[in-house]
């Protein structure tokens, strides 16, 4: 029983990271039909930027500020302004391909410019574990879970409680109508890109002490985020949240109870079945089609 509980806690912590990445993914999709295949690299990069800044000789706190600012500027604002905006009108696929190339570019640049090897990343939470219902649960897992959920709740509150948030949501649901109603659509879209970058940033700082900072870390996270977004129905923040946790849980339980050699396939196969039964995703709405 305590094995099961430990697996659940560890799965929830991993799932929280996936959820952060998946929510950003979904937001960006909603407002600008961007499938960002570089999403995993977005989660990998902030930690590398911070370490690079520290490597240059900045004190750690300043390195965090400089790294974060550089990341938000480059991959919140810059990504939207210089990649998504010029390409948006050409449809989903060319933009998706461009983000694929971007992911290779970020990965290789992080490898050549920083290091091919995994690096230690400072943790904001001490090591150690606490006893919870008789099972040893790591303090760091709890911290990851708490911070990620707090970030998500904060975002949810922003969207539902503030005027800007509601306007942003309206833009996401129907940009054309929003534009007619006089919403500053461009600014709202930019906002979602900044939020996406901020979520990636949080995920990066939470996960790098455990996963270590390495150029190739984005591969797993990006795929998991994509899958979580699909499960959630692609246009639902709640769905992405549920999807993230679900992937984290299934992955951990599959490794322990099904087959460690096929663990990567178990969440996928489960979800394929879900999708075939309910093609609009777990919490998604049906999209209408016109003739």
């Amino acid at each position: 029983m305590d094995q099961f509980l430990q697996l659940i806690v560890a799965g929830l912590a991993t799932g929280a990271i996936y959820a952060l990445a998946a929510i950003g993914f979904t937001l960006v999709w909603q407002t600008s039909q961007t499938i960002n295949f570089a999403q995993g690299e977005f989660v990998m990069l902030p930690a590398i930027l911070v370490l690079t800044a520290a490597h240059v000789g900045l004190p750690m706190w300043l390195a965090f500020i400089v790294g974060s600012a550089a990341f938000i500027l480059l991959f919140g604002f810059g990504f939207k302004r210089f990649l998504v905006e010029p390409m948006q009108r050409h449809g989903v696929l060319p933009l998706a391909i461009a983000t694929m190339a971007l992911s290779v570019l970020i990965k290789e640049a992080a490898k050549n410019g920083f290091s091919a090897e995994a690096q230690h990343f400072p943790s904001l939470v001490p090591d150690g574990s606490v006893s919870f219902l008789g099972a040893a649960v790591s303090a760091r897992d709890i911290a990851i879970f708490v911070v990620a959920v707090a970030a998500i709740l904060g975002l949810q509150a922003f969207i539902t409680r503030t005027r800007t948030g509601r306007t942003m949501q309206a833009t996401a649901q129907n940009p054309t109508v929003a534009r007619i109603l006089g919403v500053p659509v461009e600014r709202m879209i930019l906002l979602t890109f900044l939020i996406n970058a901020a979520l990636a940033l949080i995920a990066s700082y939470l996960i790098s002490p455990v996963y270590l900072a390495k150029f190739s870390n984005g591969e797993t996270i990006g795929l998991a985020a994509f899958i979580a977004a699909i499960v959630g129905g692609f246009n639902q923040i709640r769905g992405a949240l549920a999807g993230g946790f679900l992937i984290g849980l299934i992955d951990n339980l599959a490794a322990a109870y099904v087959s460690s050699a096929y663990r990567a396939a178990v969440p996928l196969v489960v979800l394929v079945v879900v999708i075939l039964v309910k093609p609009e995703g777990l919490l998604g709405r049906k999209e209408e089609r016109t003739v």
């Binding site: 951990n252 490794a255 322990a256």
Partner: peptide, 30 residues
């Protein structure tokens, strides 16, 4: 375990519950 795997919680839990006298680990560095 997978190459590039980041989360070893499930594997460690499994090892712990196997309750063997020793653990032989043959993984790459990271």
């Amino acid at each position: 375990t997978e190459s590039g795997q980041a989360d070893f919680a499930a594997d460690a839990i499994k090892v712990k519950n196997a309750n063997a006298d020793a653990v032989f680990v043959y993984l790459n560095e990271e």
